[in-house]
């Protein structure tokens, strides 16, 4: 069960020691984040230089890709905007094909603080979870949002919790860690458009163990949120439909280890 505020965050040092030689990668989806992507890369390295970093540039028109490449990150430059779902799956395919054992998602806009990576990595490393999601709705996180978004977040939390029979508070958080099992699943099948909600449901349907841990997110350092108030209604309808239909859908097959392209 996902329990909030009761999961002690392991100290970074302990996590770093456990990471050891594990092949690990940070997937950083970015769309026009030239103001923040460099800092995100630096902060991930500051937490743990052993992390490989792949920036998935989802059709940026600014210097995002150049800045990331200058810092020595792998850059996957999509020829046009695929949306966050298509971009994330590109990162997972990269992670799968290059044999990574652990992947974390860190947004290129700077809202996720790499210093909090130990919180989401901990349960995956300990073998308690296949997918660990950082939730904003822990006590004292002080998360602020627009009214439409708060309603959407509530509805999703309620629906997803009912569907996966486990308490989920933050279905739209993109601050996540997955093990090899999760990488194989997400490389094979990742939802479109506004994917975090569906990805959560999908993982549980595939018997991946889901866990939420409290994290604090920051104000966006740059760029503009991809979700406006008007679009959120459209997305809500679409995602609810997707969850509903997903209940009747056959499971996708995770990629096999000998799969190549």
């Amino acid at each position: 069960m996902a329990e909030l505020a009761e999961v002690p965050v392991p100290p970074s040092g302990e996590i770093l020691a456990q990471l050891g030689e594990l092949k690990r990668i940070a997937i950083v989806p970015s769309l026009n984040e030239e103001a923040s992507v460099g800092r995100v890369i630096d902060e991930i390295r500051a937490f743990d230089p052993g992390f490989d970093i792949v920036v998935v540039d989802d059709g940026s028109t600014d210097r995002t890709a150049g800045i990331a490449a200058d810092r020595g990150a792998h850059v996957l430059r999509l020829p046009f905007n695929l949306g966050i779902g298509g971009a994330m799956q590109t990162g997972y395919r990269f992670a799968f094909e290059h044999g990574y054992d652990l992947a974390v998602q860190v947004d290129g806009d700077g809202q996720h603080d790499p210093a909090q990576l130990p919180a989401i990595i901990g349960p995956v490393l300990a073998g308690d979870a296949d997918l660990c999601v950082g939730s904003r709705f822990a006590e004292g996180s002080g998360y602020q949002s627009s009214f439409a978004r708060r309603v959407g977040i509530r509805v999703f939390a309620y629906v997803v919790s009912a569907v996966v029979r486990q308490r989920v508070t933050d279905t739209t958080s993109g601050f996540r860690a997955v093990n090899r099992k999760g990488i194989a699943l997400f490389a094979a099948d990742y939802p479109h458009d506004y994917p975090e909600v569906e990805a959560t449901v999908m993982s549980v349907k595939h018997k991946l163990r889901l866990r939420e841990v409290p994290v604090v997110m920051r104000e966006r350092a740059g760029g503009a949120s991809s979700i406006t108030a008007f679009r959120s209604i459209y997305y809500m309808t679409k995602v609810l439909l997707a969850i509903f239909v997903g209940l009747f859908r056959r499971y996708a097959v995770p990629l096999e280890e000998d799969h190549h392209r």
Partner: peptide
């Protein structure tokens, strides 16, 4: 939609 021949966004 169920058989994945139609994406939700085009089905609405």
């Amino acid at each position: 939609i169920r058989s994945r021949r139609l994406r939700e966004r085009y089905a609405l």
